[in-house]
Design a protein around this nucleic acid. Structure first.
Length: 433
DNA sequence: TCTGGGGTCCTAGGACCC
DNA sequence: TCTGGGGTCCTAGGACCC
């Protein structure tokens, strides 16, 4: 009898990523308090450990830190995302030499599958150390490694590896005695759990759930009642039951956003028009990069909510495309059309942006073809697709969410887990054209 | 004149993540 | 004076359609 093999994930995360990148190229910054600032040098988006120790929060506005900075000699750098992206790729390539199964989760962290690699716990921790050494040697970036049987626990292990020096940067929860794991998790605030933010941790605390261990031993079904299916899954994951697989190929984005705050307040339509055209050009490049077409364009503008004395204005609008398109000119035209509808003179605008929505892989031509057959056999096709999907996934678990606007059926599971989509060509032949 | 239920799309906003 | 940008998922109300 073959035992179902349990999953093992490592989460590899670069410490203070942006700051570490800067230090890799300027060793003079090592050991000094350093922050990297956002666009327009607005907020601190990365902090060295020295700066974190001073109590500077992520996203703290730089102008509020000026005094503290002077006092402690904090060095502030403008961000250089090209550099960070390049360094990120180098780290991920190194990780792929350790395991073929890597999910790049964000610019500075990856999940690495250790399934079937090393059954011996000593070797797992050693493997973690080997990864650290290799990355440091080849990129000069420090990383920590967390290892466990679910992604949520691997994230937690990574947190422990960072905070508790005795682990020396690698925490393998699978090698610890269960009682030790309980003790460690009982000492960590529930807000540190992946997926538990400020508001949810407040609610949890009101229910007497204060630590990670409290959450872990709470009833998953009870949590579902209060917080929904996502929280239930988090709880199961904390118990070591893997509910989230490795996503090795990044799925195509469902939306593409391009937006930016202005360095100076903007009044005129023409200025907004120029900004929106520019953002759309960038968004359209990303759209073509993932080989998608877009069927509607959202534009938004708003004033500065921090200027309490100013009259505030915030609007957005969605403009449908005549046909799904990835042509910059079409998309810019639609965006400007929307902008004209929502622009009001007399306000001090601080931010504008565009969102590409309704993304699909289908070209215009296929969409048109589909609509012809759609018109002829609407109800039979819908019922057929529904039946086929319900047979496949169980009675009444699937409903058709939308079908008319593209050449693609989209079905949604009732429990709101990820979309299942199928192309016309995959439907049972009885219902195909 | 009174009354309905199903559905989609849009706008807006909240919560979370990095 | 000075407060990021890019994502996902979820909810709710109103307009509009049949």
């Amino acid at each position: 009898m073959v035992q179902a093999e349990s999953q093992v994930f490592a989460l590899v995360d670069v410490n203070n990523f942006y700051v570490s990148c800067e230090r890799a190229f300027n060793p003079g910054l090592r050991g000094k308090p350093v922050v990297v600032l956002s666009n327009n040098d607005g907020c601190a988006v990365a902090r060295s450990s020295e700066v974190k120790a001073l109590g500077v929060a992520m996203g703290a506005p730089w102008f509020m830190l000026k005094d503290l900075a002077k006092q402690h000699g904090i060095i502030a750098l403008s961000s250089n995302y090209t550099l960070y992206g390049d360094m990120s790729n180098r780290v991920m390539e190194i990780l792929r030499t350790f395991s073929p199964n890597v999910e790049v989760y964000s610019i500075d962290e990856s999940f690495v599958s250790l399934n079937g690699m090393d059954a011996m716990w000593q070797q797992r921790a050693q493997l973690g150390q080997k990864i650290r050494k290799q990355v440091l040697q080849w990129t000069a970036l420090p990383v920590c490694v967390g290892i466990s049987t679910s992604k949520t626990l691997a994230k937690m292990a990574n947190h422990i590896a960072k905070k508790q020096p005795r682990f020396q940067g690698v925490c393998d929860l699978t090698s610890l005695a269960p009682a030790d794991v309980d003790t460690i998790l009982a000492g960590i605030d529930v807000g540190e759990v992946w997926g538990v933010g400020r508001r949810i941790s407040e609610k949890l605390r009101a229910m007497g759930i204060n630590t990670v261990q409290d959450l872990r031993t709470a009833s998953p079904k009870g949590l579902r009642q209060h917080f929904g299916v996502v929280m239930e899954r988090t709880c199961e994951e904390l118990r070591g039951v893997s509910c989230m697989g490795l996503q090795e190929v990044a799925p195509a984005r469902q939306e593409i956003i391009s937006s930016k705050s202005f360095g100076e307040l903007v009044f005129e339509f023409s200025e907004l028009e120029e900004a929106v055209s520019q953002y759309m050009t960038r968004a359209a490049e990303k759209l073509r990069g993932q080989q998608s077409y877009c069927n509607s364009v959202n534009v938004f503008i708003h004033t500065d909510p921090f200027r309490l004395k100013d009259r505030q204005y915030s609007r957005s609008i969605t403009v449908p495309m005549q046909d799904p398109s990835n042509d910059t000119r079409d998309l810019v035209r639609a965006a400007i059309m929307g902008l004209k509808r929502i622009y009001r003179p007399g306000y001090k605008y601080k931010k504008a942006g565009v969102v590409l929505m309704g993304l699909s892989r289908e070209s215009t031509k296929q969409g048109t073809l589909f609509e012809e057959s759609w018109n002829m056999q609407t109800s039979a096709a819908v019922m057929g697709a529904l039946d086929a999907l319900n047979k496949r996934f169980g009675r009444d678990t699937v409903k058709i969410a939308s079908a008319a606007s593209s050449a693609r059926w989209t079905a949604k599971f009732e429990n709101k887990t990820p979309h299942y989509t199928t192309d016309w060509g995959q439907l049972p032949t009885a219902f195909a054209r």
